[in-house]
Write a protein that binds this DNA or RNA. Structure first.
Length: 519
RNA sequence: CGCGGGAUGGAGAAGUCAGGUAUCUCGUCAGGCUCAUAACCUGAAGAUCGUAGGUUCAAAUCCUGCUCCCGCAACCA
């Protein structure tokens, strides 16, 4: 089983382009693994507890539960809109999740992995958090942004993180494929060096925060939001058995892939989560891989609410279509790196690569078949070097596509498809089917050429399907082979189109996006 | 000496780990084709690969120094 998850989104505001990117990336990877014939379980969801949600709900004058329900609906309707299809949906307010978190806490507490300790420090009332020396300004004082700061003493529960960090250091040392891409590993290892000896505070007193999961062994506290949220990756696949959840052992069979943003690698996933799994008995062979993606910036700067440069994916989908949005989100960024969000590039990439190159190839090829051979596709006569070169291009680029997708490098996989499409367009120009049609003796040759083009379109439709499932189905419909959508990668052999297959007059699958002259 | 990422033709990127004549898309210029979604194809111009040194027969790639840009309080993938 290929078990894939994303970070669960914090329900403290509307989804933006970054949320959409992560889920589309995960959806594409999940669909690709299905296409490769694997069994896949794709889990995503929302993180609903914690102080910030409680504060925002208060500000809006509703209960946290109501607030969270509203925001959650915005996320799930976006996923439906842009074709993100998951097998499991995680909401941390779910009682089944609470049961699992409580069970884990109880177990860790019973095994002395959790202890109670008093902590004395500087506390910001406005931000409702303890401050450290890092929060001091150049003058060594806590700045005005913290409001009133007082020194208080408070008891809390701690998880013995320090007992697991030596293991984690060794494990990361040995493992080259736990943190992907590899360049992210250094940051994590560095953070670990500094973190030695520190345990993790996993509780918040109820007089400060009530919106969370109560500690099973002390009702005066709720669970720290990360210790609650991270457990979603196992709670929603039945770590605590539940008839309405999958069977845990059938899902977490080997190393799952967690797709997360670069901001939550350190310390949350890279340290806390791996240490938590280790503490509850997961072996090295079962440790997840963390696929860490970069950010979409605007003009080189981070997107943020305060800068007002947030991009709404729902709006983009409405304006430019789901195909253009999905394609752009995985085409114009290299997995792991940052990229600049630019609507003009979104339109450009759709128009050139999908409309002009692939869409137009499909259209011109099928049109010629309709006009010259009454829509009948047949292999025709003997092959020439041009034909074998085209077949070789398909073989080579399919291999390149697979290699890229296996490395989660979707943009490179799409480049491979494009290379074949370009090859096909060159093939058309070189062999000029409209000329072949003029002579009776070249009719056999004409059939071969048109067959090669139709066959290529069929292959491309399948290869494109993880990224653009709807468009792939439309392409399959154009070549009148609806069964294409059921094919697996291993079925992609030359000869998808049977001899004598009939097609009809095509219509554009990717109509060009025309930008209105406004603004 | 806080940590990490980055600097490659006009724009955006790949290539850097495993050194060997600089790649792709867009844009610009000039041609061609007419099957097709004013789409397609061909050719050209344009890069001292941030900078100064070093290693090497050979450096965008390895080593050292320096400069500049972006993240690391909050909102936040």
């Amino acid at each position: 089983m290929f078990f894939l998850t994303t970070a669960i989104d914090y329900t403290n505001g509307s989804p933006h382009i970054g949320h959409a990117y992560e889920k589309v990336l995960a959806d594409v990877i999940a669909r690709y693994h299905r296409l490769a014939g694997e069994e896949v379980y794709f889990l995503t969801g929302v993180d609903q507890h914690g102080q910030k949600v409680q504060q925002t709900a208060e500000k809006e004058g509703v209960s946290p539960a109501e607030y969270v329900a509203t925001v959650t609906a915005r996320f799930s309707s976006l996923w439906e809109k842009i074709g993100v299809e998951y097998d499991g949906w995680a909401e941390t307010v779910d009682p089944r999740h609470k049961t699992c978190v409580s069970a884990i806490l109880t177990d860790l507490h019973a095994r002395d992995q959790i202890y109670k300790k008093s902590y004395k420090g500087f506390y910001s009332v406005r931000q409702e958090q303890f401050l450290t020396d890092r929060d001091r300004n150049e003058a060594g004082e806590f700045g005005a942004e913290w409001g009133e700061v007082t020194e208080i003493e408070e008891e809390n529960y701690y998880f013995k993180l320090s007992e697991h960090t030596p293991w984690l250091r060794d494990f990361l040392e040995k493992s080259d494929d736990t943190i992907l891409p590899a360049f992210r590993k250094a940051e994590l290892v560095n953070a670990l060096e500094k973190n030695t000896g520190a345990d993790l505070c996993i509780s918040r007193p109820k007089d400060r925060l009530t919106w969370g999961i109560a500690l099973p062994f002390d009702d005066d506290f709720v669970t720290y939001v990360w210790f609650d949220a991270l457990i979603n990756y196992i709670s929603f696949i039945g770590y605590s058995p539940d008839p309405t959840l999958p069977e845990f052992e059938s899902i977490w069979t080997n190393r799952p892939v967690h797709i997360i943003g670069k901001d939550i690698l350190v310390p949350a996933h890279g340290i806390y989560w791996l240490a938590m799994l280790h503490a509850i008995g997961f072996t090295d062979e079962k440790m997840p891989q963390l696929l860490v993606h970069g950010w979409w910036n605007r003009s080189g700067e981070k997107m943020s609410k305060s800068l007002g440069n947030i991009v709404d994916p729902m709006e983009l989908a409405d304006t430019f279509g789901v195909d253009a949005l999905r394609y752009y989100l995985v085409r114009d960024i290299h997995t792991g790196k940052d990229s600049n969000f630019d609507v003009e590039r979104l339109v450009m990439l759709f128009n050139t690569e999908l409309a002009n190159e692939l869409g137009n190839l499909c259209n011109r090829a099928l049109n010629m078949s309709v006009r010259y051979t009454e829509g009948v596709i047949s292999p025709g006569g003997p092959l020439t070097p041009d034909d074998t070169a085209l077949q070789q291009s398909l073989i080579d680029n399919t291999a390149a596509y697979r290699k890229a997708m296996d490395n989660h490098e979707v943009s490179m996989a799409l480049e491979a498809i494009n290379r074949h499409v370009v090859h096909c367009n060159q093939y058309v120009d070189r062999l000029k089917p409209w000329e072949l049609n003029k002579n009776l003796e070249s009719k056999g040759r004409l059939a071969t050429v048109l067959h090669h083009l139709a066959e290529s379109v069929a292959h491309c439709a399948v290869l494109l399907s993880p990224v653009l499932p709807d468009a792939a189905a439309k392409l399959a419909d154009q070549v009148k082979l609806p069964k294409l959508t059921e094919l697996k990668l291993e079925d992609l052999k030359w000869g998808l189109i049977p001899d004598g297959h009939e097609i009809v007059k095509p219509s554009p699958v990717f109509p060009r996006i025309e930008i209105k002259a406004e603004e």
